[in-house]
Amino acid sequence: MNAYSIVQHLHSGFRYIVLILFIYAIIAAFVGWLGNRPYTNGNRLTNLFAMISVHTQLLIGIVLYFLSPLVAFNSTTMKDPVTRYFTVEHWVMMLVAIALITIGHSKSKKLITPQSKHKIIALFYSIALLIIIGALAAGKISILK
């Protein structure tokens, strides 16, 4: 087992932890927002851990990117859908999603009312989740071609 394989397994396995934390944070935010519930320390920690897990996944992904034999920058990169996906599309969409998560978390800390905190987390994290799902779906389509 080489370094690439180890990091690839880590990146693939850790995504489930990220997904569970992230979906839980979104559900809790919608329940808090629509149910007019207080923004508790538990909500704050859930949102923080979801953001931290996404950033950790990013760091693992960066290591994987530089170890990957699929990443190539040459004249055929953009012509091959699989190489293009892993060289360009995947990480760009994930960076956009992570930026939205970070912005949403930062904005929620500055707001005062519990409903506005829940609302901003629900909206930013949900949009980020849609981008992540779209990025992963694009990857499946690229690989299947």
Score class of each variant (00 low, 15 high):
47 N>F: 10
36 N>H: 12
46 T>E: 07
66 F>Q: 13
49 F>L: 12
55 H>V: 02
63 V>S: 11
71 V>N: 04
63 V>A: 15
64 L>N: 06
45 L>S: 02
26 I>N: 01
21 L>D: 07
66 F>K: 07
59 L>F: 15
66 F>T: 12
38 P>E: 08
42 G>W: 13
59 L>V: 15
61 G>N: 12
59 L>I: 14
61 G>R: 08
41 N>A: 13
66 F>S: 09
42 G>A: 14
10 L>P: 01
18 V>W: 08
42 G>S: 11
12 S>W: 09
38 P>Q: 08
75 S>T: 13
52 I>V: 15
34 L>P: 01
32 G>A: 09
25 A>R: 02
30 F>S: 03
13 G>F: 13
21 L>N: 11
72 A>K: 15
20 I>L: 15
65 Y>D: 10
12 S>H: 13
23 I>M: 10
19 L>E: 01
60 I>K: 06
77 T>S: 07
62 I>K: 04
30 F>C: 08
48 L>M: 06
50 A>M: 03
22 F>Q: 05
58 L>N: 05
36 N>I: 03
72 A>E: 12
40 T>Q: 06
62 I>W: 05
20 I>W: 08
77 T>E: 09
34 L>T: 08
41 N>Q: 14
20 I>P: 10
49 F>T: 01
44 R>H: 12
72 A>C: 04
54 V>M: 08
29 A>W: 04
44 R>D: 14
21 L>M: 14
48 L>T: 01
20 I>G: 09
68 S>F: 09
53 S>K: 06
21 L>A: 09
70 L>A: 03
19 L>I: 13
36 N>Q: 10
27 I>E: 03
16 Y>C: 10
72 A>S: 14
76 T>H: 10
44 R>Y: 12
77 T>A: 06
51 M>F: 07
74 N>Y: 03
49 F>S: 00
57 Q>C: 12
40 T>M: 05
55 H>N: 05
34 L>W: 00
46 T>N: 11
70 L>K: 12
50 A>C: 07
18 V>D: 09
46 T>L: 15
47 N>S: 08
29 A>E: 03
20 I>Y: 04
71 V>S: 06
66 F>V: 10
55 H>W: 14
19 L>H: 04
44 R>G: 09
42 G>D: 13
73 F>S: 13
29 A>I: 03
71 V>Q: 04
71 V>W: 11
76 T>P: 00
61 G>H: 14
15 R>D: 06
45 L>V: 07
68 S>W: 07
69 P>I: 00
51 M>N: 00
16 Y>I: 07
50 A>F: 08
39 Y>A: 00
76 T>I: 14
53 S>W: 11
45 L>P: 02
53 S>G: 01
69 P>H: 05
18 V>T: 10
52 I>W: 06
46 T>D: 11
25 A>V: 10
33 W>K: 06
76 T>K: 11
67 L>I: 03
74 N>C: 10
27 I>D: 04
30 F>W: 09
52 I>M: 14
71 V>T: 03
25 A>N: 02
40 T>A: 00
13 G>M: 12
52 I>S: 09
40 T>L: 07
35 G>M: 03
65 Y>E: 12
68 S>K: 01
